[in-house]
Design a protein around this nucleic acid. Structure first.
Length: 879
RNA sequence: GCCGGGAUGGCGAAAUUGGCAGACGCAGCGGACUUAAAAUCCGCAGGGGCGAAAGCUCUGUGGGGGUUCGAUUCCCCCUCCCGGCACCA
């Protein structure tokens, strides 16, 4: 670049953008540019605010809110880069976008930090939030911070309490003593959803213990059917997540059948007279093949049966121990089947037959009734068990033969299929299975020893936690009035500060007399306050509604406002929340709808689950020492590069293998874009704002075509499959094409990226050069906001890039005029010919046949078939 | 065991409807610029064989079969990796 031109250009740029510190070379100084825009953006708190009164179409983009651990990790950067790109794209397409952020800020780590560093949880948490918010801002994420939600603050958690009272009013919150999962490290109970392979979800090597505790539960099972059914409506959710939820709910239709204990034969009087064992089965049609009843070792009747039999008691205890151990290592399923006969018999109500009652370690107390009828011929587990203990195996279902002439007298056992007909089953013999299930269930109901039932794997949600840093459950215990809810007007029940936190001896709140001692609102007498706090998944079950009206102090949110924004158009987060958070959120939404607060049945229209960020083939973790710090990446390469790389390295739904050399390449690319614009932004050129001439020289036409193809590719990807990696590749190709065009004019030049001389300009008119650069910046804007804003200004644009219109492509201009298409002989590539895009078949075939290489390849052979695919290929089949 | 997802150069990946496998990027090699380096720009590049070279040729998308003029793509069988569920009666 001639020195004089360069100086002149710099003067222009300096005039437009106040670059006092513009470097003398064209190196892209990302820190300088990012600092400049960071400061500008920070000075305008309303910059990204959603417009509540907008006439535009709404779009609600949401990323899962983080736990404020103190620092963002690369998974966050990736998650939020996807959401931010979508947000910016939707703005540019004219939508009124809501894009909020908040903090899932209750939880145990704050208490651990308090113990270790002697810092109060609130102080520790708010400090972390400040740090992470600063990181997010530095990354340039466009959040409407005026709607920030911090779940550990009373203005939020008071509504958790309010909702709890509503649940209680509707009979959907109840207190019950039950066996619960206890994590000794957390020193609190866990919901079923928080137990992974028998261990705590936060402490993967800590087996949960079973404890008997009084707990508050929410009746999520009331919504089990709807939660299951509505999964079919969630077409915008990944099938994988829907399947996981389906499995989790675990709906199973079957029949309850009562087996009476036999008292006719001599027995030592164990068990209450007339006791019945209710079994659950999905295959009542096989009941004539039942040859024993099997009880879970914890089944209540077992205690009676073993009351005066120390031997039996000891064996049962052993079975319980085996089961517990298997659960702890997570291989209940592989457990070696053991059982013990109780010596007692039960009566099959269908045929009056007496079958032995056993206790077995493969029967689970927490599914169905904790008792089964064992049908060895038609159930794999029962078959294994019967073989081991030499119990009778009685065939009662014959498989339907595919050939009706053929009868299968002895099917391989166990036969567990449903396609069969009954034998050895009295009057039911000859019926097909499905029909028999219906008739036999009806008979059981009629005769009063059974009924049709649906069971679920899903259990009610236990929300009590014996911890400090959570929402106090707003309930009181009065000696006279019993359980009494805190009146709404007394909310919030504030979480006291200056609490001594320990992990031993129950809830820390219980040690504070000034918290525990209260007055009963009914009788005015003394009452004791509930000292448990709520599971933090309560906080995240409805936070996204609060965003719509975050400062409301009379209600959790205004219904009308929420209905304008809901459902969430696009929710983005990790698949690890597929069950926990996402099923609770759906439940909460349905409850709020039944309260009349909202009109939608489901909170989230489209869900996107991004892949993990891994390094060296493993999940990033401190113990592996493969953690990449966002701060370090920003310091070395800039926020744009970190964001762009996290989108470029892999499609967003797949795992991303982080490579420092890869982000280095992105930094180079951003420098290349920067240099091109620095050298070619000439907003003072008289032709700069003129329309692009219709009649362009071929080189310019090629650039124009590439531009329109690029716009199409990027736009299509935003609309469809979200493969931002290929979007970015496409933009790179465009930039490469621009450099190549420059190089073609000045093969010997030090740098090809400048169209300087008159002759170059005549080949690439200023109007086109301007259009290409403007579009390039617009295409880059969702991914690399800092650089894009800088270049937008450099191009002389006055309006805010945030809401500049997304570029449109012209399909005609994007269309290739000539193709180089392959010519195959018998499917093998033999030559290529150049044809015009609209050349008809006969012309192309003629050209292909005339080709020298084709000629020699088919010499002496006969053409059997000619295949022509427009714009794709020619294939000649010869013999 | 069941249900998903995946396997493509040295590496991350692309190929959107069955049509030129490896776009784009990293690392690599060569060249230009430079006293030199960095930075930058240009070019080469799946593997094997032949050739001084242009080029020619064979082969190649985890493995085996099939459908088709043509398969990374569709069908069947198998192996391995990742995720979820699991004596769920």
């Amino acid at each position: 670049m001639p020195q004089q031109d360069k100086m002149q250009q710099e003067t222009i740029i300096a005039g437009a953008t106040q670059h006092a510190d513009h470097p003398s070379d064209d190196r892209y100084d990302c820190q300088r540019v990012e600092t400049k825009w960071f400061n500008r953006w920070q000075s305008d708190p309303q910059l990204y605010a959603a417009d509540p009164g907008s006439a535009k179409k709404k779009y609600y983009v949401l990323e899962m809110l983080p736990y404020p651990s103190g620092a963002l990790h690369m998974g966050h950067v990736r998650n939020y880069s996807i959401g931010d790109a979508l947000t910016r794209y939707m703005w540019m397409n004219g939508y009124n976008v809501l894009h909020p952020m908040g903090w899932d800020s209750f939880g145990l780590p704050a208490e651990n930090a308090a113990i270790q560093n002697n810092t109060p949880p609130r102080q520790w948490t708010l400090g972390n939030i400040a740090k992470m918010k600063a990181q997010m801002n530095r990354l340039g994420f466009a959040y409407d911070w005026s709607r920030e939600v911090t779940t550990c603050l009373p203005d939020y958690y008071r509504w958790n309490q309010w909702f709890f009272l509503k649940f209680y009013e509707k009979g959907l919150a109840y207190r019950k003593k039950s066996k619960v999962n206890w994590c000794p490290k957390c020193a609190t109970v866990l919901a079923n959803e928080q137990v992974v392979d028998g261990c705590c979800w936060r402490h993967e090597d800590t087996p949960v213990e079973q404890r008997e505790l009084e707990q508050w539960f929410l009746r999520i099972t009331n919504y089990a059917d709807e939660l299951l059914r509505d999964l079919d409506k969630l077409g915008g959710w990944p099938e994988k997540v829907r399947t996981m939820q389906r499995n989790w709910i675990g709906r199973s239709e079957g029949t309850l059948v009562d087996f009476k204990l036999d008292y006719s034969q001599p027995h030592s009087g164990f068990g209450p007279a007339g006791a019945t064992i209710s079994v659950f089965t999905t295959r009542v049609d096989t009941i004539f093949g039942a040859t024993s009843v099997q009880l879970a070792p914890q089944h209540p009747i077992v205690a009676d049966l073993a009351a005066n039999k120390p031997d039996l008691r000891a064996k049962v205890d052993q079975l319980i121990a085996e089961q517990r151990k298997a659960k702890e290592v997570g291989d209940i399923g592989e457990i070696e089947k053991h059982g013990v006969p109780t010596g007692r018999y039960a009566i099959n109500p269908f045929n009056g037959e007496k079958v032995p009652v056993w206790v077995a370690n493969y029967i689970l107390m927490d599914y169905g009734t904790g008792a089964i009828m064992s049908v060895p011929a038609h159930d794999e587990r029962d078959y294994d068990f019967a073989k081991k203990y030499k119990l009778e195996i009685r065939l009662v279902i014959l498989p339907l033969a595919s050939d009706p002439e053929e009868t299968i007298a002895e099917p391989p056992l166990p036969f567990i299929g449903h396609e069969g007909s009954l034998i050895n089953s009295d009057s039911y013999s000859g019926l097909e299975c499905a029909d028999a299930i219906k008739k036999m269930t009806a008979e059981a109901e009629k005769r009063g020893f059974g009924k049709a039932t649906t069971t679920y794997r899903l259990k009610d949600w236990g929300i009590s936690r014996q911890r400090y840093w959570g929402t106090p459950i707003p309930m009181l215990y009065c000696e006279k009035d019993g359980i009494v809810p805190v009146p709404e007007k007394d909310l919030p029940v504030l979480l006291p500060e200056n609490v001594e936190i320990t992990l031993a001896g129950g809830s820390p709140l219980g040690k504070l007399p000034e918290f525990v001692n209260a007055t009963c609102p009914r009788c005015g007498g003394p009452a004791r306050r509930e000292t448990d706090t709520m599971d933090t998944f309560v906080d995240s079950s409805w936070y996204f509604y609060r965003y719509t009206d975050a400062r409301n102090d009379r209600a959790p949110f205004d219904s009308k406002t929420a209905q304008y924004w809901f459902p969430i158009d696009q929710y983005i987060g990790g698949v690890e929340h597929a069950i926990l958070h996402l099923i609770y959120s759906r439940f909460w939404t349905k409850f709020m709808r039944d309260l009349g607060l909202i009109g939608n049945d489901e909170p989230v229209e489209r869900l996107f689950t991004q892949g993990m960020v891994i390094k060296d083939g493993a999940k990033m973790s401190k113990s592996l020492g493969n953690v990449v710090s966002p701060d370090e990446m920003i310091a070395r390469y800039g926020a744009d590069a970190a964001r762009l790389y996290s989108l470029f390295a892999a499609p967003p739904d797949r795992d991303l293998d982080w490579q420092d050399s890869g982000i280095e390449g992105i930094r180079k690319f951003l420098g290349r874009v920067y240099r091109f614009v620095v050298r070619n932004a000439k907003p003072d050129d008289p032709d700069w704002s003129k329309p692009v001439p219709a009649d362009l020289p071929p080189q310019a036409r090629a650039i124009q075509r590439k531009l329109h193809q690029t716009i199409k590719r990027v736009t299509d990807d935003f609309q469809g499959r979200w493969h931002f990696n290929t979007c970015i590749s496409a933009i790179m190709e465009l930039v490469n094409a621009l450099y190549s065009a420059g190089a073609a004019f000045q093969p010997d030049a030090f740098d090809s990226a400048a169209f300087q001389t008159e002759s170059e300009k005549s080949f690439l008119p200023a109007a086109l050069l301007a259009e290409v650069q403007r579009s390039l910046v617009l295409l880059l804007a969702p991914f690399a906001p800092y650089l894009s804003h800088e270049l937008w200004e450099m191009l002389g644009e006055k309006g805010n890039l945030l809401k500049a219109p997304w570029p449109k492509y012209d399909a005609v201009l994007a269309k290739e005029e000539e193709f180089e298409i392959p010519v195959q002989i018998n499917g093998k590539l033999r030559s290529r010919i150049v044809v015009s895009a609209d050349a008809p078949e006969n012309v192309v075939l003629e050209r292909a046949l005339a080709d020298e290489k084709v000629q020699s390849a088919i010499a002496g052979k006969q053409i059997v078939k000619k295949i022509f695919v427009t714009g794709k290929l020619v294939n000649l089949v010869v013999r």
